[in-house]
């Protein structure tokens, strides 16, 4: 059979879902919206403060109980710089980073803003020094992970 006789059928797979965030994530997001603070939950067994807040510690398979605020400052752990555009996200280059907020035992991922990105290598060197960062909230938080980002102090 010749190439031109072979058929390709275009397809799409696009459904709507409603994801139940659950009580812990709902409270975490409500704290973002109403109090502009990042909350963690403490494991009853290993005592780590887990961020973002969650109902259980999967290392211990135990429930968490106490809620504690972390940050608003923290230390950058690692990062990547994304140079391709993705619909719904800011224009590249974008810095994505894991940050351990003060008081937390786990790292939280979000975008890093406020860095001069005109020279990527220079920006990378700055980030490579594991700078201190603070959380910065948008003007009208909606109770979503995109309510805040990190900026270098």
């Amino acid at each position: 059979m010749s190439e031109s006789e072979l058929i390709e059928i275009a397809g799409q797979w696009n459904f709507n879902y409603n994801y139940f965030a659950g009580e812990s994530a709902s409270r975490f997001f409500r704290e973002l919206r109403e109090n502009q603070r990042i909350m963690g939950t403490r494991c009853t067994k290993c005592r780590r403060l887990l961020v973002p807040a969650r109902a259980f510690c999967d290392a211990c398979m135990e429930r968490t109980n106490e809620w504690e605020a972390v940050g608003p400052e923290g230390t950058l752990d690692t990062f990547t710089i994304i140079t391709t555009q993705f619909p719904g996200l800011p224009k590249p280059p974008i810095v994505m980073a894991y940050v351990t907020l003060d008081g937390a035992d786990t790292a939280l991922i979000n975008l890093v803003h406020g860095l001069d990105m005109s020279d990527i290598d220079k920006a990378a060197r700055r980030l490579n020094s594991l700078p201190r960062v603070r959380t910065k909230f948008i003007d009208e938080p909606k109770g979503r992970i995109t309510d805040f980002s990190f900026e270098l102090i």
Partner: peptide, 25 residues
């Protein structure tokens, strides 16, 4: 994760990038 990570547009290669960065540092 659709609640915490997907809204950020995260891809597996970005995690590998952060892993590489952590290792290189």
């Amino acid at each position: 994760d659709p609640i915490f990570a997907r809204p950020l547009g995260l891809e597996e290669l970005h995690i590998s990038g952060m892993r590489a960065q952590d290792w290189r540092r």
